[in-house]
């Protein structure tokens, strides 16, 4: 690894090279690029799904149910005669859309709660954090099930459910960040410059407390997508004719047992690739943030 150049002046003049210094950040950059590329492809597929498939999202080819891949159905059809390839592509819209919307909602709500709790402290902090404790003390999926069952089906309700499960983490993260930022001189500087509490929160604490949020949010999108798929798999998510990967896996589960793998494997793979994209992006951002801190 050491690059040793020979210099005419003899051994003492040859530079001693200490390797390293940039490996971590280079690796992080590759992860970010890989994750972003995967997600861009998924996003493009979601947008151009009608151009990439010859069947509609819920179009039924009644004559051909459960046909194997090949021919006019690239990845075969399911038990209702719907084209798997088309549905996998169309499902990207719903999966990506719900996951992003849910995480965005969780970030907004969680950040606001964390800001207020962290800055004002006292009884407000106690009350908010105990509520967060209650949310976090349930296993994530059980909580999601409970909320989903309570709210009922529908895209909006799904977004709320998944956001409710994820918001407490942001509240905690931002609260911790605000509590340490609050002790820094720039906050004192803002107060002595006559900034109002809202001004201090909005102009000074908010922009500075978002660093960890930026890192966690992409990872969180991956988890949100898995939660969505899980809920759909259990029948609490997207209703059947609409294309969603979890629901498709669920629908095809019985056929897989009968040897017809193409009903469930393609949506499963799509889900896998998408979550991988989010994970790579998130991990990469995290590593880069850590490298910067050093």
């Amino acid at each position: 690894m050491a690059e040793l150049r020979t210099v005419p002046d003899g051994p003492a003049a040859a530079p001693v090279v200490v390797p390293g210094g940039d490996r971590d950040s280079r690796f992080a950059r590759r992860m970010i690029i890989a994750g972003a590329s995967i997600l861009s492809v998924v996003a493009l597929v979601a947008v151009f799904a009608p151009l990439l498939s010859q069947w509609g999202e819920t179009e039924i080819d009644a004559a051909n149910t459960l046909v194997a891949p090949g021919g006019s159905h690239l990845l075969g059809t399911d038990g209702n005669g719907m084209d798997i390839w088309s549905r996998v592509l169309y499902a990207a819209r719903l999966d990506l859309g719900i996951a992003l919307a849910a995480v965005a909602l969780a970030v907004v709500v969680g950040t606001l709660l964390g800001l207020v709790a962290g800055y004002f402290g006292g009884w407000l902090d106690d009350v908010l954090m105990r509520v967060v404790d209650i949310f976090q003390s349930f296993p994530t999926f059980i909580l999601a099930l409970a909320v989903a069952a309570l709210l009922g089906n529908g895209t909006i309700n799904l977004i709320i459910t998944i956001a409710a499960v994820n918001a407490p983490a942001y509240a905690r993260l931002v609260r911790a960040e605000v509590r340490s930022l609050r002790e820094l001189p720039f906050v004192d500087a803002a107060i002595t410059s006559g900034a109002s509490p809202v001004g201090v929160l909005w102009r000074h604490l908010l922009p500075n407390s978002l660093t960890p949020v930026r890192v966690i949010a992409p990872l969180n999108c991956g988890w949100a997508m898995l939660t969505l798929a899980g809920l759909s798999f259990l029948g609490l998510g997207v209703s059947i004719p609409e294309a969603e990967w979890g629901a498709m896996i669920s629908l095809g589960a019985a056929d897989v047992v009968g040897g017809r793998w193409w009903t469930s494997v393609p949506p499963g793979l799509a889900l896998f690739v998408c979550v991988l994209g989010f994970s790579l992006l998130g991990e990469g951002l995290q590593d880069r943030a850590n490298a910067k801190r050093r």
Binding site: A13, V16, V18, G20, D22
Partner: peptide, 11 residues
């Protein structure tokens, strides 16, 4: 303990 990426000459 020279940092990573150092090129040192001399003794």
């Amino acid at each position: 303990l020279l940092p990573g990426g150092s090129h040192a000459t001399g003794r």
